[in-house]
């Protein structure tokens, strides 16, 4: 269990491309942090810098009390789970798990004991003498986990570990990984592009875009108070509705298509803004202040998505499965506290 602290860390490749812009953050002991963002946002690069697989261009990185900028990956006291598992195909499960310990000259008796323990924890006891090619995707994933936990490292690093599994298995492994991490209490950094994984697993989420950390916060903060339009549109399925308009100065936003939507915030007169409303924060309300034209009703089982236009701008509303609804004009009201306002030019929260 260790703290990870990073000061002004950045990564620029020799060809001049900056993959990670200078950033500083701290990860507390035992915390589970998820780095999330679209592909190419620098999340994997950041993780690989923590692992020591990618050189650090500027800044300082500490694991515990130790500056690790120039420490070899083998000596950083980390363990990493890779997207393709990266199991050694010619070794049995037992040897795969033990390999890191053997290289560290751990006595054979202790290796055997730790491997057995890890295998029990991951339900791999029956598979210890098989080769990776004889295992299913989920089992391989567990072996990769076993290789990490058997080392009892200061830091776990996960690089999109579930993206090669099918949806059902992914849900199950998500819970298993989280439970395991809780039990072991090892500080973990987890990279994913899947916002569901990020929301469900993280103590804190780091949302990255274009090599910059857009927002750091708990899943609930990220979801309910996104710091920018990027975070607002990236997190949540379907994403937050963003309507362009102008402030009126008297507690409302005049949308470009004509309607004025009341907001519980002061808006500078005539300032271009983006009004953010989560689909599930809207409710059908015959007496509501907002006119909405429903074009398509999407049936999702647990709830329904109503796609349509609000002042000529695309808009989506999510309603529960019990709400009977058809296409055509309707009226909406927003739940209190559901309104987000962003600067139209720079995208940051107002």
């Amino acid at each position: 269990m260790a703290q990870l602290s990073v000061t002004d860390l950045s990564k620029t490749y020799p060809n001049g491309f900056t993959a990670v812009h200078p950033c500083s953050f701290e990860i507390e002991p035992g915390e589970f942090v998820v780095l999330v963002g679209p592909s190419g946002c620098g999340k994997s690069t950041l993780l690989r810098m923590i692992a020591g697989l990618e050189e650090i261009t500027t800044g300082e990185m500490r694991i515990g009390d130790r500056v690790v900028n120039d420490v070899d990956p083998a000596h950083r006291d980390i363990a990493m789970v890779f997207q393709n598992y990266a199991l050694y195909p010619h070794m049995t499960v037992r040897k795969n798990i033990a390999y890191g310990l053997r290289n560290r000259k751990v006595p054979a008796g202790e290796i055997a004991q730790r491997v057995t323990q890890a295998a029990e924890m991951l339900n791999l006891t029956d598979y210890l003498d098989r080769r990776p090619s004889q295992l299913s995707g989920g089992q391989r994933q567990r072996v990769a986990m076993g290789r990490a936990i058997v080392r009892d490292p200061a830091l776990f690093l996960f690089d999109e570990p579930l993206s090669n599994l099918d949806a059902k298995l992914r849900n199950q492994m998500r819970i298993e990984i989280r439970a395991l991490q809780r039990r072991l209490g090892v500080t973990s950094v987890y990279v994913t592009h899947d916002q569901v994984e990020a929301m469900t697993m993280a103590d804190r989420i780091f949302v990255l875009n274009d090599g910059r950390i857009e927002q750091i916060g708990t899943p609930s903060e990220i979801y309910h108070r996104p710091a920018s339009t990027f975070v607002a549109s990236f997190m949540g399925a379907p994403p937050m509705n963003l309507l362009s308009g102008r402030g009126t100065g008297n507690g409302a936003v005049a949308l470009d298509g004509g309607q004025a939507v009341p907001v519980p915030l002061d808006t500078e007169s005539n300032r271009p803004v983006l009004l953010g409303l989560r689909p599930e924060d809207m409710a059908l309300d015959g007496a509501g202040p907002i006119a909405f034209d429903i074009e398509i009703v999407e049936e999702l089982g647990a709830h329904r998505l109503l796609h349509g236009r609000l002042s000529e701008q695309p808009f989506t509303v999510s309603v529960s499965k019990d709400t009977e609804v058809g296409t055509g004009p309707a009226r909406l009201s927003a739940r209190p506290g559901a309104v987000n306002l962003f600067c139209a030019e720079k995208g940051h929260r107002l």
Binding site: A51, L53, D72, P73, A74, H75, I78, A79, M80, F82, Q83, N84, A86, L87, Y88, H90, Y99, G100, N103, R104, R147
Partner: peptide
């Protein structure tokens, strides 16, 4: 990734060659 996993597992260039 296999190379990287081996590096993290503490295998140097010689060990990686011989073991993997």
């Amino acid at each position: 990734e296999l190379v990287e996993a081996a590096r993290i597992d503490g295998a140097g260039p010689f060990k990686f060659f011989v073991d993997i």
